[in-house]
């Protein structure tokens, strides 16, 4: 599965990569901001897009809206340390399939991939 992770935090992107199963089944791409993410979506056509919520300029939900507005379809997952009801609701309203609480670990990522597969 092609996966795009969009997070301005180098640490979070690396953590996600470190905990991804090393089974050769998945290809991970990274982006740090909206323009980069849109470009990677057009080029790589990921099936799953994992977005951080707290980012400068646009939050993860706003980015997903921009992607959908540009006609780019994928399954969206929100990563956040902020699981306030308003954040979760705004994500679900846009069509996110899941909200995963940060920090991620191997168990959370495995569960996520199993759900998406």
């Amino acid at each position: 599965m092609k996966i795009l992770i969009v997070d301005d935090s180098m640490t979070s992107r690396m953590l996600f990569k470190a905990y991804m199963p090393k089974d050769g089944q998945h290809e991970l791409f990274e982006a740090t901001a909206l323009p980069d993410a849109l470009e990677k979506m057009r080029e790589m056509r990921p099936e799953l897009v994992v977005l951080d919520y707290n980012m400068p300029e646009y939050n993860g939900v706003e980015m997903a809206q921009a992607m959908l507005g540009a006609g780019l379809k994928a399954k969206f997952v929100l990563l956040t340390a902020n699981t306030q009801r308003t954040v979760v609701d705004s994500a679900l309203a846009v069509g996110f399939i899941q909200v995963v609480e940060k920090p991620v670990n191997a168990v959370k990522i495995a569960a996520l991939l199993a759900q998406v597969a």
């Binding site: 301005d8 935090s9 640490t11 953590l15 707290n54 400068p56 340390a81 940060k102 920090p103």
Partner: peptide, 17 residues
């Protein structure tokens, strides 16, 4: 707001590591 965003991201990073 920008300061808050940067500190909050580092808070998450420190927790992750």
């Amino acid at each position: 707001d920008q300061l808050h965003q940067e500190f909050d991201t580092l808070f998450g990073g420190a927790r992750a590591v």
